[in-house]
Design a protein around this nucleic acid. Structure first.
Length: 103
DNA sequence: GAGGTGACCCAAG
DNA sequence: TCTTGGGCCACCT
């Protein structure tokens, strides 16, 4: 039976949902997890369907959260004790070395 | 069927 | 550490 998760979108959302609290994955890792390299497509999907998944656990390869959503993501990181690296300008990024989730 | 867009990735300076 | 340029993939109209 073809469940919604069989679609590219469903799989992407399923991977994001599988990320445990306090951990994060990069867009590229999510794309690779479903057998694709469409990191950008993940972002597009998140912008439309991310409302139903912990999108804040998905960050760029540099550790920066979804652009224009940094403040919102920060609230979740602090609530989940996600390891962060702060810059002198008040800019933060996720410490992938400690928070990157590898299934 | 084709083109434009995007919550991106990588390599080099 | 930051910036620039090019490339890849999937979605939407």
């Amino acid at each position: 039976m073809a469940t919604p998760a069989d679609d590219f979108i469903g799989r992407a959302l399923d991977v994001v949902e599988s990320i445990p609290p306090g951990s994060v994955m990069t867009y590229g890792d999510v794309a690779a997890a479903i057998g694709s390299r469409a990191a950008r497509a993940i972002g597009q999907i998140m912008s439309h369907y991310g409302s139903d998944v912990p999108w804040w656990r998905v960050v760029r390869a540099s550790g920066h959260p979804a652009i224009h959503h940094e403040q919102r993501a920060l609230e979740h990181y602090r609530a989940e004790a996600t390891p962060l690296r702060w810059s002198r300008d008040g800019v933060f990024r996720v410490d992938l070395a400690a928070a990157r989730y590898t299934p």
